[in-house]
Design a protein around this nucleic acid. Structure first.
Lengths: 227, 227
DNA sequence: ATTTCTGATTTGGTATACCAAAAATTGTTG
DNA sequence: CAACAATTTTTGGTATACCAAATCAGAAAT
């Protein structure tokens, strides 16, 4: 999940584990996460399990309902779409600010990463590739040097992890990604707000629709199976 | 805090209490909030106190530092400014979307509220007035009918509560607020994105600077006193 | 057969106790 | 008097137990 910071506490480890299981689809939507049972299974007490569930709830991966087991969230197409809209707005805002504030180091890190993506594109599995793409977009957000903005952007990126992953693997296209990233970088380097905006539009224009399609497909699948 | 939803749990009550004390300035920045002592004082156990501190930390009102007591946050001017920038972007995005999506009911509630503000302006204390202003801006965000957007906007509004309050009381001006709100409303009613953008710019243009000034003044005050 | 009532189960919330790691404090020594 | 080492607090994290409210399931009654 690109969370390098060592999951130090038990709660964080549990959260990380559950997060993986949810995002990878091992714990499909609507799966109940019983605090007591689950804790017993893992051989831990309720305290860290509560904490972990809380973390995931805050990330939007599980939903808490009063007096019922928390369940893995099944975001509707609209919910995901709405979140994508906000993510795009945050990223475009970041890029605009970055036109003024990005340092040379920011820019060279972006260039470096894009090169790495270009190289790796055909040798690396979807997951690693996706992580790199995510890192690229995170760098853009960080280049605005606005901590609040970067943090909120990151939160949305994390929340949309699964949806973006579905969409990305569905629509894998080396030239598109690499050249788009290149265009964004060049515009940033030129510190040209309009060019940046155009480049981001170009790159992200279809994201909302792609993701919606991916989610719809998955929900339809679930419909057919579980009822 | 305009949080009508009954604070049902002890943790929420404690959080609400601490929040008030912090925002009202009773617990000034850098004040330590010892989990054990504080819990003992209130006659509760550590569990809900931990929970409460956690809530406030997430709101940015207190900062957690490893192996040290949590303390009331002392946001820097830059931090607050950065947050204001994001808040403005979210509100402008909301308004843009609201041009398409706002319902008649949204618009009439906005009108109603603005009228109420106009009436109350000279009879009501700063706090109540401020709550109304906050509600107005929240309505704008909700008129976009994008839950994620509204939620994030609300979170920023809450986080900036104190800073905005300082700025608002410092720069109280009936005509300005009421006419600006009116202009925003009219633009929304006309569903004219450009007019909405202009009206919001007009209203919020000085917010960042005002807030920065207010924070700077407060920090300078603290400097003089506590060192 | 449907509804209603009652008791068992599940859940969230709280209190309490324990432990290890990290700080602050103290005492000691060069 | 300063640097260092040992001890004492403080803190965060975890485990465990208890309680009340809400849910759920099964029995009883119409």
């Amino acid at each position: 999940m690109s969370e390098s910071p060592a999951e130090s506490t038990l709660a964080e480890q549990i959260a990380a584990q559950l997060r993986r299981d949810i995002l990878r689809g091992k714990l499909p939507p609507d799966t109940a996460i019983k605090e007591r049972d689950n804790a017993a299974d893992l051989g831990v007490s309720r305290t860290p399990m509560r904490e972990a569930i809380r973390i995931l709830a805050q990330e939007g991966l599980v939903v808490l309902r009063p007096s019922r087991s928390p369940i893995v969230a099944r975001p509707t197409v609209k919910e995901v779409h709405d979140q994508v809209v906000v993510l795009l707005a945050l990223e475009k805002l970041s890029a605009q600010i970055a036109c003024e504030r990005a340092t040379e180091e920011d820019l060279s890190r972006l260039a470096e990463l894009n090169e790495k993506i270009a190289e790796a594109y055909d040798h690396v599995d979807a997951l690693d590739l996706f992580e790199m793409d995510m890192a690229f977009h995170r760098l853009i957000a960080e280049s605005a040097h606005n901590a609040a903005l970067a943090e909120t952007h990151h939160a949305y990126l994390a929340r949309l992890w699964r949806a973006r992953f579905l969409s990305a693997t569905m629509r894998r296209n080396r030239e598109r990604v690499v050249s788009h990233h290149g265009a964004i970088m060049e515009a940033l380097r030129a510190r040209d707000p309009k060019a940046v905006d155009a480049a981001l539009d170009q790159h992200l224009a279809n994201l909302a629709e792609d993701i919606s399609a991916a989610i719809e497909a998955e929900n339809a699948e679930a419909e057919r199976a579980g009822g």
